[in-house]
Simulated assay, not measured.
Amino acid sequence: MSEELDAIDVRILDLIQEDASLSVAEIADKVGLSSSPCWRRIKRLEEIGVVTKRVTILDRAALGLDFEVMASVKLALPNRENLEKFEAAVATWPEVVDCATVTGAVDYMIRVVTTDMHAYDGFLRDKLLGQGLVSDVQSRIVIRVAKRTTSVPLGLSQGKRR
């Protein structure tokens, strides 16, 4: 659906992607609206598919899940059937927090989160290579994250139609 977003919509989106726990009254106050029109705008943003989900971001280190790997995955035979099988398998693996089809020498980039090197080795052997679909995996252990955000850069889309 093609919908134009105005400055108030963009401000609401900025606020809720920064802190989804804000009440409608708090958001309304920050954007200069009363609660009812603000609530209607938020509902409209949900209905048109701009807001798809609201989540809580957890501290992985506090949960003992601070071992992260970026892996490039090449399928043995990247045909439609194998791509679909691989993606269906990935969807069931909780360790994979991101999976994207990419261009170039590999078929996928995945981000894997787990407890330690031994857990990653088990994931690699039992799940990733255990499917018989993968011909090559290049794993890169994340040492330090310089930037990570869940925020969409709204300033880049202002004035554009969806």
Rank of each mutant, 00 (worst) to 15 (best):
M1R: 14
M1Y: 08
E3F: 12
E3H: 15
E4M: 14
D6P: 00
A7N: 11
A7F: 08
I8G: 09
I8P: 10
V10D: 01
I12K: 03
L13Q: 01
D14W: 09
L15M: 04
I16V: 09
I16P: 00
E18K: 00
E18H: 02
E18Y: 00
D19L: 01
D19Y: 00
A20C: 01
A20S: 04
S21Q: 11
L22R: 00
S23R: 04
E26H: 06
I27T: 02
A28R: 06
D29I: 00
D29R: 13
G32K: 05
G32Y: 00
G32A: 08
C38Q: 02
W39R: 15
R41C: 01
I42E: 04
K43Q: 12
K43V: 09
R44N: 08
L45E: 01
L45F: 03
L45G: 03
E46I: 07
I48G: 07
I48A: 07
G49Q: 04
G49I: 03
V50A: 07
T52E: 13
T52K: 15
T52C: 06
K53N: 12
K53G: 07
R54C: 01
R54A: 01
R54W: 02
R54N: 03
V55Q: 02
I57H: 00
L58P: 10
L58G: 04
D59Y: 05
D59W: 05
L63E: 14
L63Y: 11
L65W: 07
L65F: 09
L65R: 14
D66M: 06
D66W: 03
D66Y: 03
F67N: 09
F67W: 01
M70V: 15
A71Q: 02
V73S: 04
V73A: 07
V73R: 07
A76K: 15
L77N: 15
R80K: 10
R80M: 08
N82V: 08
L83C: 12
E84D: 11
K85W: 03
K85Y: 05
K85V: 04
F86I: 03
A89P: 10
A91K: 10
W93R: 06
V97R: 11
A100G: 04
V102H: 06
Y108G: 08
Y108N: 11
Y108T: 04
R111W: 07
R111S: 08
V112E: 00
V112Q: 01
V113C: 09
T114M: 00
T114Q: 03
T115G: 12
M117A: 14
A119I: 06
A119C: 09
Y120I: 07
F123D: 10
F123H: 09
L124E: 12
R125W: 09
R125S: 13
K127L: 04
G130V: 01
Q131K: 12
G132C: 04
V134I: 05
V134L: 05
S135W: 07
D136V: 09
V137D: 06
Q138S: 13
S139P: 14
S139I: 03
R140M: 14
R140K: 14
I143L: 15
R144E: 15
V145P: 08
A146T: 11
A146M: 12
A146P: 10
K147F: 11
K147S: 10
P153H: 05
L154R: 00
L154V: 04
G155E: 06
S157R: 13
Q158A: 13
G159L: 07
